[in-house]
């Protein structure tokens, strides 16, 4: 059975079904003191396989990227600015709680249940996006938010599986928000 691997790799690379277990629910950008801040709600829906891995001490890293894109009719869109945030979630067996961290900082939050932890990780509030001075007045912009699982951060033996198994396809489709300054 294992012998099929190298061939399947190639085939999977070519035809990868898009089933998003992670989805971005809402985006809202508001102008606060001449700079836009972003509220994003991401729903992390993990497959049993992933939950199992999490339960067994595998730490998951997600990257959320928000980009401000100016739509242009006659050329490809221009990315004005983009910001990223890293989130991580892991299970602490001793205290039996889930630990959510972001941007590699020491600050971590603890949650008794996985769903609480995922909700906490998915609710991003007041994320400074861009200074309004960088935007052109009355021009149409789009805020594009996407969320990806950082497979590279997984333990090495898990990586090939994470690349090619459907359960591990945890990249969210990008969501757009129209922004007119």
């Amino acid at each position: 059975m294992q012998l099929r691997w190298p061939f399947l790799c190639v085939i999977f690379l070519l035809v990868q079904p898009c089933i998003a277990a992670v989805s971005i629910h809402t985006i809202e950008a508001t102008l606060v003191d001449e700079s836009y801040v972003l509220d994003v709600d991401i729903e992390y829906d993990l497959a049993d396989e992933v939950r199992d891995a999490l339960q067994n001490g595998i730490e998951l890293h997600f990257e959320v990227q928000a980009a401000v894109v100016r739509s242009r009719n006659w050329m490809w869109d221009e990315t004005v600015d983009s910001v990223t945030r890293q989130y991580s979630i892991s299970y602490r067996p001793l205290a039996k709680h889930y630990q959510v961290g972001h941007d590699k900082s020491e600050e971590k939050t603890y949650h008794k249940t996985l769903s609480q932890a995922l909700r906490a990780m998915g609710a991003i509030r007041g994320w400074p996006l861009i200074n309004s001075s960088e935007l052109i007045h009355k021009e149409l912009y789009q805020v594009r938010v996407k969320c990806t699982l950082e497979v590279d951060q997984l333990p090495l033996p898990l990586q090939p599986t994470a690349y090619f198994s459907q359960d591990w396809q945890l990249d969210a489709d990008p969501l757009l928000w129209r922004l007119i300054y």
């Binding site: 190298p6 067994n56 090939p160």
Partner: peptide, 20 residues
């Protein structure tokens, strides 16, 4: 726990590489 969990993956990785 982690290694125990990953052992099937470790095995499959080894087998895969050896198959290659």
């Amino acid at each position: 726990g982690r290694i125990s969990y990953m052992r099937k993956y470790i095995k499959s990785n080894f087998v895969m590489t050896l198959s290659l």
